[in-house]
Lab assay of single mutants.
Amino acid sequence: GEDLPLPPGWSVDWTMRGRKYYIDHNTNTTHWSHPLESGPSSG
């Protein structure tokens, strides 16, 4: 998808195989999909 801006506290990194993933430092979790690309989340 597009390179959307990341929310505060997020960063992007790549695996050893070159796969892009996103790090949420607020909750110390990692995600394969961009936080703003996922569907609407409630709460």
Results as ranks from 00 to 15, higher is better:
36 L>F: 09
27 T>L: 04
29 T>C: 01
42 S>I: 13
35 P>G: 02
6 L>V: 05
21 Y>K: 05
19 R>S: 08
6 L>H: 01
18 G>Q: 03
28 N>G: 14
28 N>H: 11
6 L>T: 01
3 D>Y: 09
20 K>Q: 06
2 E>M: 11
6 L>Q: 02
7 P>N: 00
6 L>I: 06
22 Y>I: 01
40 P>T: 13
25 H>Q: 06
29 T>E: 06
7 P>F: 01
21 Y>I: 07
30 T>K: 14
32 W>L: 05
17 R>A: 15
16 M>D: 15
1 G>D: 13
43 G>Y: 11
1 G>T: 13
19 R>K: 13
19 R>A: 09
43 G>L: 12
32 W>G: 02
33 S>N: 14
11 S>G: 06
24 D>P: 00
16 M>E: 15
10 W>R: 00
11 S>H: 04
5 P>Y: 08
6 L>E: 14
7 P>I: 01
14 W>N: 05
35 P>R: 02
18 G>Y: 04
26 N>P: 01
42 S>D: 13
23 I>F: 08
19 R>M: 11
40 P>V: 13
17 R>I: 10
24 D>R: 01
11 S>C: 14
24 D>H: 05
11 S>V: 07
39 G>Y: 11
33 S>V: 14
17 R>K: 15
10 W>I: 00
31 H>G: 01
10 W>H: 00
19 R>N: 11
39 G>Q: 14
20 K>A: 05
4 L>P: 15
26 N>K: 07
3 D>T: 10
16 M>P: 15
13 D>K: 12
34 H>P: 06
27 T>Y: 04
7 P>V: 00
41 S>Y: 08
23 I>P: 00
28 N>K: 08
25 H>V: 04
31 H>I: 03
36 L>V: 06
1 G>C: 14
10 W>V: 02
40 P>N: 13
39 G>W: 12
34 H>Y: 06
31 H>D: 01
19 R>Q: 15
15 T>K: 01
4 L>C: 07
21 Y>L: 05
4 L>W: 10
35 P>D: 04
23 I>Q: 03
36 L>Y: 09
9 G>H: 04
22 Y>R: 00
37 E>M: 14
1 G>F: 12
9 G>S: 03
43 G>K: 12
12 V>M: 10
15 T>R: 00
28 N>A: 07
17 R>C: 15
3 D>A: 10
36 L>W: 09
6 L>Y: 03
5 P>H: 09
33 S>P: 03
16 M>I: 15
42 S>H: 14
30 T>E: 06
13 D>L: 09
2 E>Q: 11
3 D>P: 08
18 G>P: 02
30 T>V: 15
19 R>V: 15
5 P>A: 10
12 V>S: 06
6 L>F: 02
42 S>V: 13
39 G>A: 13
24 D>L: 02
40 P>S: 13
8 P>T: 08
28 N>T: 04
29 T>M: 06
2 E>I: 11
16 M>G: 13
13 D>T: 07
18 G>D: 05
21 Y>Q: 03
25 H>P: 02
20 K>E: 05
30 T>R: 14
10 W>Y: 01
20 K>D: 02
10 W>K: 00
8 P>E: 09
5 P>S: 09
2 E>D: 12
16 M>S: 15
40 P>Q: 12
25 H>S: 07
5 P>N: 09
21 Y>G: 00
43 G>W: 11
13 D>W: 10
10 W>Q: 00
8 P>W: 08
24 D>S: 02
9 G>F: 06
8 P>M: 08
2 E>A: 13
7 P>Q: 01
11 S>I: 05
24 D>A: 02
1 G>L: 12
6 L>R: 05
36 L>I: 07
25 H>I: 04
36 L>D: 07
22 Y>S: 00
10 W>M: 01
32 W>P: 02
2 E>V: 12
39 G>I: 11
24 D>Q: 03
14 W>A: 06
1 G>V: 13
29 T>G: 01
22 Y>M: 00
30 T>Q: 09
4 L>T: 09
11 S>L: 03
42 S>M: 14
19 R>E: 15
21 Y>S: 01
10 W>F: 02
15 T>A: 02
13 D>N: 14
2 E>Y: 10
5 P>T: 09
25 H>A: 07
30 T>Y: 15
17 R>H: 15
25 H>M: 06
24 D>F: 02
13 D>P: 00
9 G>A: 02
23 I>T: 08
5 P>D: 14
26 N>I: 08
31 H>Q: 10
23 I>Y: 08
33 S>W: 11
41 S>R: 07
18 G>M: 03
27 T>F: 04
29 T>L: 05
37 E>R: 11
39 G>H: 12
33 S>L: 13
9 G>Y: 05
15 T>F: 03
34 H>E: 02
12 V>E: 07
9 G>I: 00
37 E>D: 10
22 Y>L: 00
43 G>N: 12
42 S>W: 13
2 E>T: 13
12 V>H: 05
3 D>F: 10
26 N>L: 07
32 W>Q: 04
34 H>G: 03
3 D>I: 10
41 S>A: 13
32 W>I: 04
30 T>W: 15
6 L>A: 01
43 G>C: 11
8 P>S: 08
40 P>E: 10
6 L>M: 06
13 D>A: 15
26 N>E: 06
40 P>H: 12
11 S>N: 04
17 R>S: 15
35 P>V: 02
19 R>C: 15
27 T>D: 05
29 T>H: 04
19 R>P: 04
7 P>D: 01
43 G>M: 12
7 P>T: 01
32 W>T: 04
30 T>D: 04
20 K>M: 07
3 D>G: 10
23 I>E: 02
12 V>D: 03
40 P>A: 12
31 H>A: 04
35 P>H: 02
29 T>N: 03
24 D>T: 00
38 S>M: 14
34 H>I: 06
20 K>V: 09
5 P>F: 08
33 S>K: 14
3 D>E: 12
20 K>I: 09
13 D>F: 09
13 D>Y: 14
38 S>R: 11
24 D>W: 02
9 G>T: 01
7 P>W: 02
21 Y>V: 07
33 S>R: 14
41 S>I: 12
29 T>P: 00
17 R>W: 15
13 D>E: 15
17 R>N: 15
26 N>G: 05
21 Y>D: 01
9 G>P: 00
13 D>V: 08
15 T>W: 03
38 S>D: 10
36 L>S: 09
28 N>E: 07
35 P>I: 02
12 V>A: 07
41 S>H: 12
7 P>Y: 01
39 G>M: 12
5 P>K: 08
8 P>Q: 08
38 S>T: 11
33 S>G: 08
23 I>N: 02
37 E>Q: 13
43 G>A: 13
30 T>S: 09
15 T>M: 01
31 H>E: 01
33 S>A: 12
39 G>E: 10
12 V>T: 07
31 H>V: 04
30 T>L: 14
40 P>D: 12
30 T>N: 08
2 E>R: 10
36 L>G: 08
41 S>G: 14
32 W>N: 04
21 Y>H: 03
2 E>H: 11
38 S>H: 14
7 P>M: 02
36 L>H: 07
4 L>Q: 10
42 S>K: 14
33 S>E: 11
9 G>Q: 03
14 W>T: 08
20 K>T: 04
34 H>N: 05
21 Y>T: 01
16 M>H: 15
28 N>C: 11
27 T>E: 03
39 G>K: 12
4 L>F: 08
26 N>W: 06
15 T>P: 03
14 W>H: 09
23 I>A: 01
36 L>E: 06
43 G>E: 13
19 R>H: 15
29 T>D: 03
11 S>K: 05
2 E>L: 10
23 I>D: 00
43 G>I: 12
11 S>R: 05
13 D>M: 13
11 S>P: 01
17 R>L: 15
39 G>T: 12
25 H>K: 06
21 Y>F: 10
16 M>R: 14
41 S>K: 09
14 W>R: 09
2 E>G: 10
41 S>M: 11
14 W>Q: 07
17 R>D: 15
6 L>W: 00
8 P>D: 10
25 H>F: 06
37 E>A: 14
33 S>I: 14
14 W>K: 08
42 S>R: 10
23 I>R: 07
37 E>K: 12
29 T>A: 04
41 S>C: 14
21 Y>R: 04
4 L>N: 08
12 V>C: 08
37 E>P: 06
26 N>R: 06
31 H>N: 04
13 D>S: 12
10 W>E: 01
4 L>G: 08
17 R>V: 10
16 M>T: 15
31 H>T: 07
33 S>F: 14
9 G>E: 01
5 P>M: 09
26 N>A: 07
32 W>D: 05
14 W>F: 14
2 E>W: 10
40 P>Y: 11
9 G>V: 00
32 W>K: 03
40 P>C: 15
16 M>Q: 15
31 H>W: 09
38 S>I: 12
4 L>R: 10
18 G>F: 04
7 P>L: 04
22 Y>K: 00
29 T>V: 05
2 E>K: 10
16 M>W: 14
11 S>E: 09
